[in-house]
């Protein structure tokens, strides 16, 4: 089964205090955040929602994770594909993969570069902290693997971020952690995010007669074989 490792993977968070305009809507709808330091091989905040009291003021923190996969070699939609993310920690967090629209080099401005109207998986309601967690990619994701040279994905909290539900007053701390591709250089090289997929197949079309009147026949990625029975 072919495998595509993740690249350009990291997480971005928005952290705002009530006395500086913070609220659930403010962090959820923010257009930029703080990008995690590069060379980070793991995070406890892959998808994270925190509301807490800090120095007398309520604070909201929202983490989102972004990653992409090189699909330039895929010309036929895979028959199935699974995004596999090795878990690290978990506290009551359901997560989901959605379409990412982030830049080719992740930046602080990518915090809101995702499209929740295009989910790439169903809700993942359980999170293993000692093995891979599977996101079964849906038809939209499979088609995106053909249509684009890279599949860009965002991983977010399902119950709060995806559904845009205010987690409520302090204190709330729900999160799921993961390994990133940076782990590939060390002892955890077997824990990096990746996609396993089954190559697609287009069944041959058999004509008994083919005719073109005044138009061309274009053959892409194949050949026309004419035999004599």
């Amino acid at each position: 089964m072919p495998t595509i490792p993740a690249t350009n993977d990291s997480h971005i968070n928005k952290n705002m205090a009530a006395n500086f305009g913070g609220s659930w809507d403010a962090v959820h709808d923010a257009t930029s955040g703080v990008l995690a330091a590069s060379a980070e091989s793991t995070t406890t905040g892959m998808a994270r929602v925190v509301v807490f009291t800090y120095s007398g003021h309520t604070r909201w923190i929202l983490h989102r994770t972004f990653m992409e996969f090189d699909t330039s070699g895929i010309s036929v939609a895979p028959s199935d594909a699974t995004l596999k993310i090795y878990g690290l920690n978990q506290t009551s967090t359901d997560v989901i993969a959605v379409k990412g629209t982030q830049a080719d080099t992740l930046s602080t401005a990518d915090f809101d570069n995702l499209d929740v109207s295009v989910p790439y998986s169903a809700e993942v309601a359980t999170w293993s902290t000692s093995g891979y967690n599977d996101f079964t990619l849906n038809a939209a994701a499979l088609q995106a693997m053909v249509d684009n040279t890279s599949l860009k994905v965002a991983i977010i909290s399902y119950d709060n971020d995806y559904l845009d539900v205010d987690p409520g007053p302090p204190s709330v701390s729900i999160q799921a952690g993961c390994y990133f591709s940076e782990a590939s250089a060390g002892a955890d090289s077997d824990k990096i995010p990746h996609i396993d997929y089954t190559e697609g197949y287009i069944a041959p079309v058999v004509w008994t007669e083919m005719e073109s009147k005044g138009s061309d026949i274009n053959i892409k990625g194949g050949s026309l074989k004419i035999g004599v029975l």
């Binding site: 968070n13 925190v50 807490f52 800090y54 923190i61 302090p170 204190s171």
Partner: peptide, 23 residues
């Protein structure tokens, strides 16, 4: 302690939030 007590968070969680807040 100021983060742990009012929020009922454990120490690792509190330390992580302090670092996140003062990145």
């Amino acid at each position: 302690n100021g983060v742990m007590t009012p929020n009922s968070f454990d120490e690792p969680t509190a330390i992580g939030l302090i670092k996140d807040t003062n990145h």
